[in-house]
């Protein structure tokens, strides 16, 4: 039996007195593309941010490849730290968060050089390779302010991939884009999925989720309300609430 990459049991997260996640159980298997859908405010972002400890869970068990994770940067004993976790679990943000003072190339090589200790030559070779994969080989020397939204997000994906992560977390990565730029980003994600990348994908692009997700979670009020194959959840929704939610996206 294969071991889950990430396993979560009874995970809760509160901001002050507001309980945002109310007991999440989740196993993320290698190669799986997990789609996460649900209404705004249901806790999707909080959940995905817990998976790389960007938010520290309030309670519950969280293991990465069987190892427990502490909330400290450095691990202790058998438990790994957030720094080690985040090397392996990449994240792409809705608003790109590229480093504006660095060129595209430096945006991508900063992490591998500082965190993985790669040489400049090694990191740049990998970065150029990744830029070619996302169709931006000619933008290596450009600065983020000169890129379109779609190009920025593809750079952000390349930046995350440069760390050679085991898992990639994507939180509504096309929501801030003009409609005509969504396709180029989705194409990159689709190719990653086909390449066997393990991903968690929070999205409102239901058609896309149906295409590439191997499993879909429907979140509501801090809980996983329903889950199953993309077909079951997106094409044959059982609960009224899920049907209601989906109907808003099919217009």
């Amino acid at each position: 039996m294969t071991e889950p990459v990430i396993a979560v049991r009874g995970l809760t997260k509160s901001f002050g007195s507001l309980e945002v996640l109310k007991g999440i159980d989740l196993d993320l298997m290698p190669g799986e593309v997990l789609g996460v859908i649900g209404p705004s405010g249901s806790g999707k972002s909080t959940l995905i941010r817990c998976l790389n400890m960007m938010e520290i869970p309030t309670s519950g068990r969280f293991t990465f490849r069987g190892q427990e994770v502490t909330s400290r940067f450095r691990g202790k004993g058998a438990r790994i730290g957030t720094g080690e976790l985040r090397r392996e679990v990449g994240m792409v943000f809705q608003h790109f968060n590229l480093f504006p003072h660095l060129s595209v190339l430096d945006n991508i090589t900063k992490g591998p050089r500082l965190v993985r200790g790669q040489s400049r030559a090694e990191a740049e070779a990998l970065a150029l390779d990744l830029l070619a994969q996302v169709g931006l080989a000619d933008k290596a020397r450009a600065y983020p302010s000169h890129l379109s939204g779609g190009q920025k997000q593809r750079v952000a994906i390349a930046r995350a991939l440069a760390m050679k992560p085991v898992v990639l977390l994507l939180d509504e990565v096309t929501s801030a884009l003009d409609p005509e730029l969504v396709g180029e980003v989705l194409a990159v994600i689709r190719r990653l999925a086909e390449g066997g990348m393990t991903m968690v994908l929070v999205t409102h692009e239901m058609g896309f989720a149906a295409d590439i997700a191997s499993r879909v979670l429907f979140m509501e009020q801090g809980r996983i309300a329903e889950q199953g194959s993309a077909d079951d959840i997106l094409r044959n929704p059982r609960s009224d609430r899920l049907r209601g939610f989906l109907s808003r996206f099919h217009g």
């Binding site: 960007m54 985040r86 943000f93 968060n97 480093f99 992490g111 965190v115 760390m163």
Partner: peptide
């Protein structure tokens, strides 16, 4: 923007880095 700090943390940089 706090997204800058998050993006740095997301690739495993320490607070000082």
């Amino acid at each position: 923007d706090k997204g800058q700090r998050e993006a740095a943390a997301a690739v495993g940089m320490s607070g000082v880095q």
